[in-house]
Nucleic acid binder design. Structure first.
Lengths: 117, 117
DNA sequence: ATAATATATGCGAATATGCGCATATAAAGC
DNA sequence: GCTTTATATGCGCATATTCGCATATATTAT
């Protein structure tokens, strides 16, 4: 029950749902999502961390970047239904679609960007 | 997206999850759930109302009672996955099982109780 | 009508949450 | 070494949430 509380608390925030929407499309670093959602670095970093601590995202460090991605396998094991509910809600949402479009234009900043997947 | 936020916010609270657990077994009035969870009348009333406003419960008035029940059909239509996630979390939880046991012993108070299903 | 009862709610206090600002941390390049 | 850059975090403030107390509301019984 406590796990579900932690998970639903993490989902009950517009910024975090919009972040999850982006990371569901592909692995993202902090600077990309702050461009796509037009939010501050503090806000992006803290809410990504919250999603990570709630068990929705996994974190991988590469140089200066913190790369967040959805841990689909773990999610499927622990919350087989929650992720479906989220995807469903994001699929028919205009804001979520616009965010995904802006993510495509967002750039991964930094000198080490070239050739670092 | 806003609907999902409202729904997950309603679910991200232990009192409300325990209440939902009870009402999932059968229609309940306020005085029954406050006995089963051993919580105050204010707390029971307000959190049931929150679940109702979030679209999880339907409300029916009968005499002095407010009878809350899960609107399974509507839930299924609007959140086909959320309810499953909740049921799954409650199924393997000791507190939830104890609450259900105490609900069976709870009495629907009031003089009009006899013969009022 | 009055009394009793179940539920709802205004108010206030305690606590939690979200986020901006400034700063710290850490990795890469010079 | 120093600088630059991406990210994390301590602090403080504004806002939101939760809940108890007291009281209001509504229904039934007498």
């Amino acid at each position: 029950m406590q796990d579900l509380i932690k998970a639903t608390k993490a989902l009950s925030d517009e910024t975090r749902l919009r972040l999850l929407n982006l990371v569901l499309t592909r692995e993202c670093c902090v600077c990309e999502v702050m461009q796509a959602l037009n939010i501050s670095q503090t806000r992006a970093s803290r809410n990504l961390k919250a999603l990570h601590e709630a068990g929705f995202l996994k974190l991988r460090k590469n140089g200066l970047w913190s790369l967040y991605s959805v841990d689909e396998a773990d999610m499927q094991a622990r919350y087989p239904h929650l992720l479906r509910a989220v995807k469903r809600a994001l699929q028919n949402n205009a804001t979520a679609a616009e965010d995904r479009a802006r993510l495509k234009k967002a750039e991964r900043l930094g000198p080490g960007c070239v050739g670092q997947p």
